[in-house]
């Protein structure tokens, strides 16, 4: 019953600075370890409530990909927009691309809003805010899992067989998830202070989706070809997709660089979040 060593907490201005950077990783690690159950509970709360007062429930997760892909098929067939040369059935290519893309876009929109939508919880209770951001990206993972069913149906319809390399998919998804989470950390804080950020992200996501070859083939000429070459999001989407469709990775170099960049962004954002999270409660 009695604590052998009682925890002593001190609060001072610029607390983390006083303690020094080397303690930050330990602090973050302990916080996340201690709050595993909280993360799960928050995730469960989001999961059970997001579709609760709706008729088709979780099926909403497949509506966006179907509508987007459908639009592109119509645009392509009427000659308004050229999808480009794709050597697999287009619906599979596009739905797969959307699934990986949405992991990023849904995750980032959810996480950047996580602190703001928690509202009074942030200002009235001291709890792990990292858990809140992490749990919010869970929604994106759930939609992804639901979209897998759509992909399986398409595979069966077109009589395709998935490659054994499909087992590597979870690993190739990690960089995308780290990037999402990292950016989510930073943007959630900034959104907490300036609501403009949340609006910008929604607009930016649509823009970035059209800029990245998610629903069309990789362009070979023009300015978009150059943009794609240096767009890390392209590699993070196309590599897992290629792995599912062909079982190979042709652009591993770009993927590797994008992965390292994602990892670095994740670490930097996590540290910044840790240093600045107490600033949010007073401004939100």
């Amino acid at each position: 019953m009695k604590h052998t060593t009682e925890k002593i907490t001190t609060y001072e201005p610029d607390n983390s600075l006083r303690k020094g950077y080397r303690f930050i990783f330990g602090e973050i690690f302990n916080e996340l370890k201690k709050n595993r159950w909280l993360i799960f509970q928050l995730f469960k709360r989001d999961f059970f409530t997001i579709y609760k007062q709706s008729f088709i429930g979780v099926l909403w997760a497949v509506v966006i990909p179907i509508v987007s892909v459908g639009t592109f098929i119509v645009l392509n067939q009427s000659g308004v927009f050229a999808i480009g040369d794709i050597d697999v059935p287009y619906p599979i290519y596009a739905v797969l691309g959307m699934a990986f893309w949405q992991l990023f876009s849904t995750g980032l929109i959810a996480s950047s809003n996580s602190l703001v939508s928690a509202g009074s919880m942030i200002t009235k209770i001291n709890f792990s805010k990292k858990s809140l951001v992490i749990a919010s990206t869970g929604q994106a993972i759930v939609s992804f899992l639901i979209q897998i069913f759509l992909i399986v149906i398409l595979f069966v319809y077109y009589g395709l067989k998935p490659n054994i390399a499909i087992l590597l998919i979870p690993i190739t998804m990690i960089p995308m998830m780290l990037l999402t989470l990292g950016l989510g950390f930073i943007l959630s804080i900034l959104n907490g202070i300036m609501r403009d950020i949340g609006k910008i992200i929604v607009v930016l996501m649509t823009f970035l989706m059209f800029l990245t070859p998610v629903l069309y083939a990789k362009p070979t000429t023009g300015i978009l070809a150059t943009v794609t070459k240096y767009n890390p999001l392209y590699y993070l989407v196309s590599v897992p997709r290629e792995l599912v469709l062909k079982g190979t990775i042709s652009e591993w170099k770009g993927f590797l660089i994008a992965s390292i960049a994602s990892f670095i962004i994740f670490i930097i954002c996590l540290i910044v979040f840790h240093l600045t999270e107490t600033r949010v409660a007073e401004r939100i």
Partner: peptide, 27 residues
Amino acid sequence: LNGIFWPDKGKITMKGEVGALIEIGAG
């Protein structure tokens, strides 16, 4: 005292686990 935000001056030291009833049913 609950660490929801930090002081701008001075120092707070808390010994032990802290529980707070600041808002009921938040969350």
